[in-house]
């Protein structure tokens, strides 16, 4: 075993301290919101760091979770996220792979088309009309289909495919595998890290998306979770609305409700990451090649 020098020990120590400090700072908004969500409205009004709730209560959660439609929205968002990840992975990898093969004609042209689409878009009205003309308004497809193949994901994936040594793919072909077979049994297993990243990216973006749902979805029972978050967070800052709120003596603290809504909408997606992490272990790809 390698013997660590004194200098390396110092490096390790400093490194760990730095990373711990960063972790402490990045944990703060989470802890703050968690504490707020568990506080009584009166405690939430108090000044201070809010690192631990003084009189923990689940009242705000209870209030948020009994809103009509929120559980349905939870289900909708979950379906959307799972469906979104599946569609993105299947279509993006299938589209990206040919673009990584040198023999595929007009690769440069296609890549230019993808890049152009990343920068320019036609805006809201033509998109809405397209969705309406396709009959997708008020359906989950309006949220799923437009992002199935996007330039960003595609380019990342293509680049990863490109980095796979040509010889591995050629040897599979010599063994008699067709393109699709080479792709599924050689290329994809080698690409687990990038597939995991794209899955995480598209999952999180589907989970957090609200604008498309706000525009394309009318029925309350098809709404997504983030719209609830947006409503709780936004209504606060509406001048006229808050004057109207003054009419109601039920000044239930909005801070705790806001925090509870954010926690409810965020916790499930946070739990996904640790599962993704196992694809980032060093040597995972080589293992699958040589093994």
């Amino acid at each position: 075993m390698h013997h660590r020098t004194w200098g390396e020990k110092v490096f390790d120590g400093v490194n760990m301290v730095l990373l711990l400090a960063l972790a402490f700072l990045t944990l703060y908004p989470f802890m703050y919101t968690l504490t707020m969500s568990l506080s009584t409205p009166v405690d939430a009004k108090m000044p201070g760091l809010h690192l631990l709730p003084m009189n923990p209560t689940l009242e705000a959660y209870n209030k948020v979770l009994t809103q009509s439609g929120i559980l349905q929205a939870f289900v909708n968002t979950t379906i959307r996220t799972v469906g979104g990840i599946t569609l993105v992975l299947v279509f993006t990898s299938l589209t990206a792979y040919p673009l990584s093969r040198k023999s595929f004609p007009h690769r440069g042209l296609f890549m230019k088309l993808f890049v152009f689409s990343m920068l320019f878009n036609g805006g809201l009205i033509p998109m809405y009309l397209l969705i309406r003309n396709l009959g997708l308004l008020n359906t989950m497809w309006a949220l799923l289909l437009p992002g199935v193949v996007t330039a960003f994901n595609l380019i990342i994936m293509r680049n990863f495919f490109q980095s796979i040594p040509e010889e591995i793919i050629d040897s599979a072909k010599i063994d008699g595998a067709g393109e699709l077979r080479t792709f599924t049994s050689v290329v994809l297993p080698l690409s687990m890290p990038v597939l995991a990243v794209i899955a995480l990216w598209s999952g999180v973006s589907h989970w957090n998306a609200w604008f498309d749902a706000m525009i394309y979805i009318q029925d309350l029972d098809k709404q997504v979770l983030q719209l609830f978050v947006r409503r709780t967070v936004i209504e606060e800052s509406d001048a006229l609305a808050s004057q109207t709120e003054l009419m109601h003596a039920t000044s239930y603290s909005k801070e705790t409700l806001k925090a509870a809504t954010v926690m409810i909408a965020t916790l499930p997606i946070l739990c996904v990451y640790p599962f993704i992490q196992r694809f980032f272990v060093k040597g995972i790809m080589l293992g699958s090649v040589k093994g």
């Binding site: 809201l124 009205i125 809405y128 009309l129 309406r132 706000m214 525009i215 719209l227 947006r230 409503r231 936004i234 209504e235 509406d238 609305a241």
Partner: peptide
Amino acid sequence: RADYAQRQQIMMTT
């Protein structure tokens, strides 16, 4: 309420 103005604009425009 939070979505009203935007949704109304889109609906009116289309």
